[in-house]
Design a binder for these strands. Sequence first.
DNA 1: CCCGAGGCTGACAACGTTGTCCAGGCTCTA
DNA 2: TAGAGCCTGGACAACGTTGTCAGCCTCGGG
Lengths: 345, 345
Amino acid sequence: MPQTHLRSATRYGNRPTMKDVAARAGVGLKTVSRVVNGEPGVTPETERRVQEAIDALGFRRNDSARVLRKGRTASIGLVLEDLADPFYGPLSRAVEEVARAHGALLINGSSAEDPDREQELVLALCARRVDGLVVIPAGDDHRYLEPELKAGVATVFVDRPAGHIEADVVLSDNFGGARDGVAHLIAQGHRRIGFIGDMPRIHTAAERLRGYRAAMEDAGIPVADPWMSLGVTDPERVRRAAEDMLSGPDPVTAIFAGNNRVTVTVIRVLAEHSRRVALVGFDDIELADLLQPGVTVVAQDAAAIGRTAAERLFRQLDGSPVAPERIELPTRLITRGSGELPPAD
Amino acid sequence: MPQTHLRSATRYGNRPTMKDVAARAGVGLKTVSRVVNGEPGVTPETERRVQEAIDALGFRRNDSARVLRKGRTASIGLVLEDLADPFYGPLSRAVEEVARAHGALLINGSSAEDPDREQELVLALCARRVDGLVVIPAGDDHRYLEPELKAGVATVFVDRPAGHIEADVVLSDNFGGARDGVAHLIAQGHRRIGFIGDMPRIHTAAERLRGYRAAMEDAGIPVADPWMSLGVTDPERVRRAAEDMLSGPDPVTAIFAGNNRVTVTVIRVLAEHSRRVALVGFDDIELADLLQPGVTVVAQDAAAIGRTAAERLFRQLDGSPVAPERIELPTRLITRGSGELPPAD
DNA sequence: CCCGAGGCTGACAACGTTGTCCAGGCTCTA
DNA sequence: TAGAGCCTGGACAACGTTGTCAGCCTCGGG
């Protein structure tokens, strides 16, 4: 007996196929296919017999084969930085909802901010022939996607634009949001305002820094170097940066935190300080209203970003191709107290 | 010209196949397959020619076809309640890490706590022939999974046991955790302790309620009905329940909150009250240490749960079949202040 | 010089499904 | 009653890949 035969009998743990169902129901293969897919042209009586066989055998259509035949997988890929980051929860959920509305499943993975891992993930998703991709880029060169784009994989970038390729991107107005947040501090009378953010090679970080500078410049306040701390994101270094700003010869009276992780650490540092220092953070954080004082933030609408990106994706898929576009969503300043503290010199 | 020909030319937007690569490189189909899969037995010179053709055409292996042939998809499904819930972020991430270590991708979906939607999702994943499933059940009858289990789909339930079928389950010691949390309040001198939790038809909620009752009984404290509020989870009703407990003729001096959402709302209510009421919550919440007072919680280790479940899943897949098991992970009481407030009568 | 061994290579079938197309039986009409 | 047309059902190829197997070629030893 050829070995293939044995193998085929144990594939998928002996999963019945349409052929098996057809044999049991005493009908042709295609008739089973018709019943399974609810296609017309099957007598009620025949349909009943087929359905009976399906139930008896526990048959479930093999979508791999279906995909191979049809060319559409009805699934989209989502590559983000870290599923555990609270910013991405609502975002994924929104993408999922839209996908679901279009009958698609969501496959996702975390790049852990590693460009190589991002590429690996994206290409794995392409190999599975996802219909589309939503990517929160970790790297800044996406030319590896060129063949995929040419092959028609719909792609939308989120949070940061793609590098060296033309593609849709949906992001917050990082520049405007940061500028507004800093301007808010200036309006309270602050002039010595610190900025702690991520490396400027990250697009969002660069934009927020630019917003900080713009607000300061608009107010005619020269920015001192020690007020800015860039490329600082792990708690230990944020802590040190904040303490430096607060203790120097020319200490800041307010801090603008470049993202949620920074904000949380700065809150911790400020809690240990006696002097009241104002704080505005980029990204909302949970329970921010329950702290003393409440934390004023520039909030992004993660769900709206996800929804917009996914809808844009399916527009690419459903309709005629459209030119890549950059969609910027507004941010919202939420005042809760920490940003309204006056300067305490 | 037959229409099939046209279609086949535009499938996947004209994706090149191994056949195309073979033609361009002037080799056989199987040789391309060998190169793509790094199989031995190809001259360096031939390999170079093939690789060149691959790069030139932007070829990417079609995993759907591969899956069809091999019978393994190298992907696992994760069905949870809500990706946006902070409890599930670290959990998904942990599952993803383990999957990645085994070379598998993660497909996931949210059931939104709707049993029908759970079933729909699970079966869709089965149709894609995921190798395994991690399910956080929304429903309480999983007999629909019987054919799948019989067919060899590895399955691990998380957070709650499966209904009417035998399957692995990984969960926290909800009973013990709640009992310890309530005992902690009793140890501070509280006797009138309220409990606000979800519907007891949800396994975790029932277990936590049982823990509450056990702790009270151990201390010889009879439980008054108005102290317990079950099936209450949306903020508005939690708020009302909490206020009722605090304002009755026999007001509670402490509250045990059955899950993180309840805890957050209770914190809000307590913040508006002048009388100091103790609080212990099930599930940790972010920034709990920064609130005044810090929130004492019974913490579950979501990442550990996810990791354990995924590892168990791959053990099912890799090795010989093992008998279904129930794995309970310990919880941890984290004291931060709110649970150590003495009774204020 | 011949033979066997071993290394490369490619032809072919199969995975499970769906699209196409045709056959056979039926009804309806002239 | 014959012919046209409709309805139902099934045979067959194709999707892109991988496992099997057989053929060719080279090389070394007898």
